[in-house]
Amino acid sequence: MTQDLIYSVCGIALFGIGLYGLIIVPHILQKILAVNIMGVGVFMLLVAAGHNPGGVSDPVPHAMVLTGIVVAVAGTALALSLVCRIGELQRDGADEEAAP
């Protein structure tokens, strides 16, 4: 098994693990983490595709991964901020219910 194949296989395995987390695990924060794991899996596959044994590796997948990381950060941040706002609203609602 060559190096690039090991990385590719692990990348796809990570994608599968993330998919499992997103669909099966009920906790919302774990779901958001799962999406990030899926992203890392895809990035590994991309980097492996750019691996060039004995030569200069292909910079295009590296650039794609860098862009992908920024996009993943943005998506994660938006998800977390939505979770925070939902949590606040739910807590406010619970406070109102608790008040006599």
Partner: peptide
């Protein structure tokens, strides 16, 4: 099989 040569 192996990856295509890419754009390097």
């Amino acid at each position: 099989g192996p990856a295509a040569p890419g754009l390097q």
